[in-house]
Write a protein that binds this DNA or RNA. Structure first.
Lengths: 202, 202
DNA sequence: TGGATAATTGAACACTGTTTAATATATTTG
DNA sequence: CAAATATATTAAACAGTGTTCAATTATCCA
């Protein structure tokens, strides 16, 4: 099966070439403004060929979305070394926000694009689920240390995620300009610090 | 000037007819999936005619965005009758979230669409500014009653807005499905309740 | 070498936002 | 009233979009 294997590899290579081109342009111009022809041109391919390797535009997009989630999760996993769960939680928020700042385009792809999948039991879903479970267990650990007691774990997790996401979402869609005389970095950092202050008093 | 006036009125009438058609379709299908031809067909107009009344697609969109902000602000103004500033703040969040639930499409138009204006000194900006000032002064009132002391007003306002927006943003882009066995309403309501609980302990 | 299989292409289809020359309608002026 | 002007509307065209598909090339196996 040596030849069949090579064939397989060549196909995967093409798969990657397309994905690399798509990543570059998607992250440059965003989802809507990137055309299949743009991607094809980037690698001197014909537009039709893309459809031999991918079902449609959304399938390419979803692979990149998945990439983004993996990237974020890996950055969060570094914090597993932080022993104290509350410190870990606080640091996770900082990492999350930093990820959005440094990967604004990935973030937009991951969280700000209309869902294209009808059956969410695939791609993003499982890995997003993983992120949420991670978060949930972290908060449960905090609760076992006496923090956030009498709070429902699931709803509290949702709230914490919302607060972090809210900061990033305003940033990603340029809704921070209404706060004059404040840079995005100041707003996000100090805004999150306020949230942490709330958590610490609880 | 009777005739000139009538002319003016007729033009404004057309302006409204277009806006009504655009609102219907924008809120049905979202910004990107709505075409100028869709809007023109809705009122049996030619696509080109739209450009006599509006500069381009974004100008139509921005008027509707402004509508949404006015709608939200009006709902918030009802709470001016609530004397206690902290009670008013808590209720504002509930109204905000309810607005997102009941006007998901407006909310998407207002907060989740890529900014089209290059010079933000117009349209949304001023009215968003108004909303933020409203929020800011509400929090300042709270601080004068001893709440959220030692917090920077601006950053705290940004954080509160982020928390509310985060809840709505996850809802609006269907990122709530990863919390299984929980409805959107449960998540949003109880999630916000958790946030309020944090605020109350501060 | 011949036939099957896989990969690629370019043209076509029905759409998109926008521009523009031509046209129709209405208003003002001579 | 008629001519000229201003206003409003239209259809056609342009360059772009995602996607499909028949035709073509390249590659492999017998």
């Amino acid at each position: 099966m040596s030849i069949a294997e090579r064939k397989q590899e060549e196909k995967q290579e093409m798969h990657q070439r397309i994905l690399n081109a798509a990543r570059k342009i998607f992250l440059e111009k965003g989802y809507e403004k990137t055309s299949m022809r743009n991607i094809a041109n980037e690698i001197n391919y014909s537009p039709g060929s893309l459809y031999f390797h991918f079902k449609d535009k959304t399938e390419i997009f979803q692979e990149l979305q998945k990439e983004g989630f993996t990237l974020l999760l890996n950055q969060l996993k570094v914090l597993n070394s932080v022993a104290d769960p509350f410190e870990r939680l606080k640091a996770s928020g900082r990492v999350f926000i930093q990820f959005a700042q440094e990967n604004k385009d990935y973030y937009n792809l991951m969280f700000m694009v209309e869902e294209t999948v009808k059956n969410p039991a695939e791609t993003r879903f499982t890995i997003a689920q993983e992120a949420i479970n991670h978060m949930c267990s972290m908060i449960r650990d905090c609760q076992q240390q006496g923090k956030f007691i009498e709070m429902d774990t699931d709803y509290f997790t949702f709230m914490v995620l919302s607060a972090m996401h809210g900061i990033c979402a305003l940033f990603c869609k340029d809704r921070t300009t209404s706060f004059i005389n404040k840079t995005n970095e100041e707003l996000m950092e100090n805004g999150y610090a306020c949230f942490v202050a709330l958590l610490e008093k609880s």
